[in-house]
């Protein structure tokens, strides 16, 4: 079983209202170290076989056409995250 992880973040120039709400909540719980939070999305795509270059290419295409909206989001990583069994 293979796995591809796709990570999507709001574009830097787009205000991230959810991240802003989270950074506002952190100091109320005593976490005063963090001056900013941006909230993104992580997708785990399972494949039955190995993660071949073709599978990775398909994942990249899915990432830019479906999993993200390029108007407001960037795909920041598409990686083979298959766990190697001991």
């Amino acid at each position: 079983m293979g796995r591809v992880v796709v990570e999507v973040m709001p574009k830097p120039e787009i205000l991230d209202p959810q991240g802003k709400a989270v950074v506002g909540a952190l100091p109320r719980l005593g976490f005063t170290q963090f001056s900013g939070v941006r909230q993104g999305k992580r997708f785990e795509l399972e494949v039955d076989g190995e993660v071949t270059p073709e599978v990775l290419a398909a994942a990249r295409e899915a990432a830019t056409t479906v999993l993200s909206n390029p108007v407001i989001e960037d795909v920041v990583a598409v990686t083979d995250a298959t766990e190697v069994s001991a």
């Binding site: 205000l15 209202p17 709400a21 108007v71």
Partner: peptide
């Protein structure tokens, strides 16, 4: 319509959430 690219731009969460 914006997701279908018939109109430009996009909608995100209201600024006040």
């Amino acid at each position: 319509l914006t997701e279908a690219h018939l109109l430009p731009g996009s909608m995100i969460k209201n600024d006040h959430l």
